[in-house]
Design a protein around this nucleic acid. Structure first.
Lengths: 209, 209, 209, 209
DNA sequence: GATGAATGAGGCTTCATTCAT
DNA sequence: CATGAATGAAGCCTCATTCAT
């Protein structure tokens, strides 16, 4: 039995339509979870936002937790993808600035970041989420380390710093910024700027000082 | 008739015992919230952990939300108190190291930090929590800025850095570390070490380079 | 495509079955409220009487109060409908006698009357019920006045009496009788007879004296 | 053991103070029950209104139901006492008018009447209340019959009417008026006037026609 | 595939009542 | 007596999930 042919009985479903529906539900769930968190969000809310019936959800996701996990996975993947923007950057710090700036301006990036806070909190309860988060963290750190080392090889970063160490610290900085994004009316700009400045001072090659 | 006995009828109220009970409930709630989060924790769990009946909770807290808010307030206060340890430190960086280290070793500090993740997530839903968090953030940043400026005046910090900017970045770093504390089996040490290294590189006076 | 099928996806809603269920719940609630009053009746009792689950109630009524209000409305409407029996009566007093008699014999009429006592009591607490009761009272008095005036025009009633005044007094008499219906083992007959006699003496045209 | 010496142990209680407290509680309960009904009223409300602790209630009344019963008894007694005003009235109808008028003007009389609606409703649930109400009704009817017969003997009432029949009908009228007293902003005057007119037409001796 | 209807389990909160002080 | 504290029992309501259509 192949993964792409789970059930040949009955009317063969249109896989495209199915994927679209699924994405539509995920988007709705994302919006709801952002508003009210995983636990406070009800299946009724999600289905209303998705424009389908409650029972309809269960044809695309086993249960509510599966929905959460799918969303967590998607969100973590998106976070990692963000790092790829730094790869082969001509001006490393400039791109870092762009990425951090996107957190405060690009609504998609922002919503990703905000959901991440919820994910971290959920990791305390759900072993499954914790496992995904840890795995994502490992990949993320590795990718970031890689990117930094690469930039360092290109002479854009102080050769004395340890790429992995910087990666870890930058991860922490980002998570801190994520938290601020959740606050209403909070001035996000200063946090981003301060983080950027700290990164700059840390990695700037001596020539830039 | 003594001044402390305005009402001598009936069983005298014992404010000490009452405060103890209240603290006992708060501790129980703290433990539960840490384990399962604000929403997944039930009043039954809290009362069981506190060793009283469910109805008993309601003699000390109006409702579950009041319990949450009390805990949030206490936790935020504790976070701010942490900064005072940095005041008048003979060796600023050493004390920073101590404080950050405590996050990973002192169970009380750690549990404070872990609850904070829950608080940040809750801030997305509860305006009351958000308000408290923002207010705490303002105080925290101010206190941190103050402490840094003071250390700077004592020559322990590079005179060129902007104290407030550093304070903001350090806040972000700390929040990031808080998140890692929630992960099971995650190596917290490297994160703390990396954060510390970044701080060191940022604030170290030129003489220390 | 028929006009009656605006939404052909999924299980079609059956308005008839739905209305039946709703009526069934209302009947169950009526029986329970009659036995134990609005406040003492629990949702568990109603659902058991209706043969559905507690949660099932909430698919047909927003909450317990909505159920009460629906029942109040239905009951008040029924009371007003009673007056229409008097319209165009060939022998006015005879029909009055019939109606009053039904209060003590027809179980549906009786249960309506008994619930009314509960409604009047509830009106003291619930502004919504009070409003409905007052509105019903106004309509009721107007209808009764109208009916009396019409009978008066036909010469069945003493031309000297004021139709509205009689209507008000008859209303009071009826409410008093309602109260007696609630008493166990109370001889209702004499009350009805006495009330009827009083009405007769009041409205009888001189020719009948 | 006599009823007046239930317990000789301990400090002999001051019976007067005790009775005062009891009356005070009854008054408080009356006010609360009027506002919210028997079931919706909590012991906390009553004790707050009475200015004592909740536990204090239980030193004067076995439980909440005993409080209700005491109040019911008092209220019914008061209703019967009202009839005595009609005894030996020089002008029977005039006094009837006075009494009915008091229902709408004298706050004590009114509150008695309003509580009676609650009592009638409660009679559907509580056999004890029902029993008291029936017993009171019997006494009331007897007293009213007696008063009417007496006035009839004095020539103030049409000798052809049956005193008991009139008594029953008047009871119904009064109960109907009681119900109107509960309605907010309802014009009570017309109801009283209409009832009075009906009584007048019923009992007026031919000489008065 | 889609959905209206149904429901068991459980959550938060209230309340009458008891008891130690 | 008087009362603060404690609690078992219950009530209303919600929610994730299932199932017949």
């Amino acid at each position: 039995m192949t993964a792409s042919a789970p059930n040949r009985r009955g009317r063969p479903a249109d896989p495209v339509a199915r994927a679209e529906r699924q994405a539509q539900i995920l988007d709705a769930a994302h919006a709801c979870f952002l508003r009210r968190g995983f636990h406070a969000t009800t299946t009724a809310e999600i289905s209303a936002e998705a424009g389908i019936s409650i029972a309809g959800l269960y044809q695309y996701f086993e249960n509510k937790e599966a929905l959460v996990l799918a969303l967590v996975e998607k969100d973590l993947e998106l976070g990692i993808a963000l790092i790829d923007r730094l790869r082969d950057a001509e001006d490393f710090l400039f791109v870092v600035e762009q990425v951090l700036g996107a957190l405060a301006t690009d609504p998609i990036i922002e919503s990703m970041a905000r959901l991440r806070v919820e994910i971290v909190a959920e990791a305390s309860r759900s072993p499954a989420v914790a496992e995904m988060l840890v795995a994502s963290d490992v990949r993320m750190t590795a990718a970031l380390t890689d990117v930094i080392a690469s930039a360092q090889a290109r002479g854009q970063i102080d050769p004395n710093v340890d790429p992995e160490e910087v990666a870890l610290a930058v991860s922490c900085l980002c998570d801190g910024i994520y938290g601020r994004l959740c606050l209403p009316n909070a001035a996000r700009g200063p946090f981003v700027a301060a983080s950027l400045a700290m990164i700059r001072r840390t990695i700037a090659p001596d020539s830039a000082r």
